[in-house]
Nucleic acid binder design. Structure first.
Length: 821
DNA sequence: AGCACGCCGACT
DNA sequence: GTCGGCGTGCTC
């Protein structure tokens, strides 16, 4: 009786987004499991696929079912739990199943098709070449070339014979050339050769004595090997240590003294670093309470979610560390998610120091190979704490007890391309599967999360004071309009200039923060501080350079680029634009001789440069650290006593209802970098909107007040947490089609929508109205929590299938979008 | 997505 | 007459 496997093939297209049945040949029966990665024939090709189910029957006539060609890994890389999670994701986020599965694996495990060619009639069998006589000389050339090589990749062949695709196809059809297709991994495993010996002491001595007298080098090598007292030594170490060549070792192998063994080597990205072991620190009372509550939940081994709301410097990380310790004691495992940007060496070090080799680190700065190695350590249970950015939530752990999401409000937990998942949601999903505890930690929780805590959907734990009762830094707000009125046009206000000067003289350090995102997109009057807003939407207009207009991307309202401020008629109207480079120049000009480290995408693109700069700053080899987002998070340096925010408004006026929330979070985070140790800290915030509640309340470090204020506004305008959002993006090559199709889609949605559960806005052109020669429209949906939007949208799209298929429209859906652009 | 099949215009 | 354009349809 044959067995069959249901396989999701690597063809992310609607028609292929379903399992295909394959027969499992007898030779592979022991290898094919749920979660296996296999190579399967699909049409004329051989593709990678994932086994999602194994069955003893198939609905298809046996003749129509092909065999699985190969199994690509010794063990199935996807745990059954993740296979199911992938299905849930594909339904919930409206993506192809295979896309959801692939995102869970390191890119090293993405096999691609390889085509090998071979001449089918060896010359030897047909020396006269008669069989080829009716071929053209060119065709014969190809066959001779292939015979000379034995086997060649199709790329090499086409390199040799450009534009020969068609001829090649014909030769394959006529069976002059044989084609083999299979799936190969993009990246192999790294192997290291070790020298080992199985001999007992006596045998060894005997062997050593038997060495010919002239074999000086061999004797030397053998004695050195023995002296090390290790069971195995890296061949490369031995060769370099004794300055001998491989042939010496070959001699010892021949005489049976040693043998070589290939072993898989993990590329440990931290192998050259020593981590000083640390043990638990004493907990403050609030820490202790939070910890105890978490431990109780861990002991219950049931899914439970907590919000750990702790102000900056209150010691959230220590609570994580000790909770993880408890989790490991239970024989369970943990995942720690941190935003990519704060996955700093400092952060990693704290975990490595506490848990040593039991920690595996996954982040984007590792090479594909390194990532794969760390992933495998987790897969094999050699590491039981996985720490990483967003995608680490898929770490292949089998017994998860705890999932920590640090800085849970960070938008980087939402993946911006398919599958557009939110790591927080995936974490909650996995905690259900494992009976695990989830800790969402933040000083500035997202509105949604805090609202959930108030609704008791999450249990709230609070750390209201800093460790060792250190005071929060003093925050000053500088009104940049006033500066201008008094004739100061510099990027630096007088207040900030003085403060920097002061630290410089005292040998203390400053961090200057420039929020680059959003520059040049909004219009601001330097005289009255007003921004130009949409009359219908109460949101800043976006400057569109293409047609020099201001637009609202919620309702589509547009106006021409203004020459004067609509409020005060001043001509001091500006399209904002300042970069870190410009700030650095200004800084050096003002303080000749000051040592500045600039950290932005330009200076940190190189591997390890991030770490290098921070180390330099930590060793006090610079007076000022100037940077974007990346200096806002997680840094903890004792001599930083000043934090300056160059322009606090940038995010505030982005056309996004989360502008105030983002501003508040960012300012609070940045301010938290100052005065974390024995020296008191000071924060200077420069802004054109000093009275704005998000800036005022960030200065007061008053989360609760901000939450209340913002919540009222969200309620009024009906935005999350009072509803949930979905965004439908429509793109097409030409404008008339997209307008027409957009309308048809929205009409259909309106016809089928359940009253009072969904509101539909749009379609309107996206703020980026054309990308890569495709026009973009978007349509926003507000819906009440609990309504199954995804399946409703999918159903509606299916109904329109015929219309949509004939046009070249692309439709993609984003559930709970973070950016409305 | 690819790749084949299939049906219409400019070339040896 | 053929080469080659890309519309349409399918992949267990």
């Amino acid at each position: 009786m044959s067995m069959y496997a249901k396989v999701i093939v690597d063809v992310p297209v609607k028609d292929a987004n379903r399992p295909f049945d394959y027969r499992i040949p007898d030779s592979l029966v022991d290898w094919v499991e749920i979660g296996s990665r296999v190579g399967v024939p699909f049409g004329p090709r051989v593709l990678q696929g994932f086994v999602i189910e194994i069955a003893s029957t198939t609905e298809h006539p046996p003749g129509r079912v092909k065999d699985i060609q190969e199994v690509l890994d010794v063990e199935p890389p996807l745990l059954p739990e993740l296979v199911q999670l992938g299905r849930w994701m594909s339904e919930h986020y409206l993506c192809h199943w295979v896309t959801a599965l692939q995102v869970m694996l390191p890119t090293a495990l993405k096999g691609k098709e390889e085509i090998l060619l071979r001449a089918s009639t060896p010359l030897a069998a047909n020396p006269s070449g008669d069989g080829l006589s009716h071929l053209t000389p060119e065709e014969r050339d190809m066959i001779y070339w292939l015979e000379g090589r034995g086997r060649a990749a199709i790329d090499a062949f086409l390199g040799q014979f450009p534009n020969a695709q068609r001829t090649l196809k014909a030769l394959i059809r006529q069976k002059y050339i044989e084609e083999t297709r299979r799936v190969v991994d993009t990246l192999g495993t790294k192997y290291i050769t070790y020298v080992v010996s199985d001999l007992s002491g006596e045998d060894w001595d005997r062997g050593l004595a038997a060495l010919p007298l002239q074999a000086k080098r061999q004797r030397e090598a053998a004695e050195w090997f023995r002296k090390q007292g290790e069971e195995q030594i890296r061949l490369s170490d031995l060769l370099s240590e004794l300055q001998i060549s491989r042939s010496v070792v070959e001699g010892l192998i021949q005489k049976g003294l040693v043998r070589l063994e290939e072993q898989e080597e993990y590329r440990d990205p931290y192998k050259d670093r020593d981590f000083e072991r640390t043990t638990s620190l004493p907990l403050t009372e609030p820490q202790e309470m939070a910890y105890r509550s978490i431990v109780e939940a861990l002991n219950r081994q049931e899914p439970e979610a907590y919000l750990l709301h702790g102000i900056t410097g209150s010691g959230k990380t220590e609570v994580y560390l000790q909770s993880i310790e408890r989790c490991l004691e239970q024989g369970r495992q943990a995942i720690v998610l941190v935003p990519e940007i704060s996955l700093t060496p400092q952060m990693v070090e704290r975990f490595k120091s506490r848990f040593g080799d039991r920690v595996a680190v996954l982040h984007s700065r590792l090479s594909h190979g390194e990532r794969f190695d760390e992933w495998r350590r987790i897969y094999r249970g050699e590491a039981d704490v996985a720490i990483g950015a967003r995608s680490a939530v898929f770490a292949p752990l089998r017994r998860i007890g705890l999932i920590v999401i640090d800085e849970e409000h960070e938008s980087s937990y939402k993946q911006e391309d398919h599958p557009k998942y939110h790591a927080r949601e995936i974490a909650l999903q996995r905690s259900q599967n494992h009976g695990a505890v989830v800790i969402l930690g933040s000083a500035t929780p997202s509105m949604e999360t805090y609202a959930d805590a108030q609704k008791k959907k999450l249990r709230l734990l609070t750390l209201p004071v800093r460790v060792a009762d250190r005071p929060l830094p003093e925050v000053k707000i500088v009104d940049m309009r006033q500066e201008l009125r008094e004739g100061h046009r510099s990027i630096f206000s007088r207040e900030l200039t003085e403060a920097v000067q002061d630290r410089w003289e005292r040998g203390e350090q400053s961090v200057l923060f420039l929020n680059r995102r959003g520059y040049s997109t909004f219009v601001l009057c330097r005289s009255c501080g007003d921004t130009v807003e949409c009359p219908h939407c109460d949101i800043s207009l976006t400057y569109h350079q293409a047609n020099r207009s201001l637009r609202c991307h919620y309702c589509g309202y547009a106006m021409n680029e203004p020459r004067e401020c609509p409020t005060c008629q001043s001509d001091q109207i500006r399209f904002f634009g300042t970069g870190t480079q410009k700030v650095e120049e200004e800084l050096v000009r003002r303080f000749p001789g000051i040592r500045v480290i600039r950290m932005d995408v330009d200076t940190t693109s190189q591997k390890g440069s991030h770490e290098k700069w921070l180390n330099q700053f930590g060793r006090r080899q610079a007076d000022v650290l100037l940077g974007t987002q990346m200096v806002a998070k997680g840094l903890d340096f004792p001599y930083v006593t000043l934090v300056g925010v160059i322009a606090a408004d940038t995010v505030l006026h982005l056309p996004d209802f989360r502008g105030s929330e983002r501003t508040f979070q960012l300012l609070t985070q940045v301010a938290g970098r100052a005065g974390r140790h024995h020296l008191p800290g000071e924060v200077v915030i420069q802004t054109y909107s000093p009275e704005h509640y998000s800036i005022q309340l960030a200065a007061q470090q008053s989360y609760d007040a901000f939450f209340r204020e913002e919540l009222a506004l969200r309620k009024q305008a009906i935005y999350p947490p009072y509803c949930r959002l979905a965004m439908i993006h429509i793109t097409h090559e030409d404008l008339p089609s997209i307008v027409q199709l957009g309308k048809r889609l929205v009409d259909r949605l309106n016809e089928t929508k359940p009253e009072r559960k969904v509101q539909i806005f749009g379609p309107v052109p996206s703020p980026l109205s054309r990308i890569k020669d495709r026009y973009r429209y978007q349509c926003m949906l507000k819906f009440i929590d609990g309504f199954p939007v995804a399946s409703w949208i999918q159903q509606t799209l299916d109904e329109l299938e015929d219309d949509l298929k004939t046009s070249k429209v692309h439709i993609s859906v984003d559930i709970d979008p973070q950016m409305l652009m």
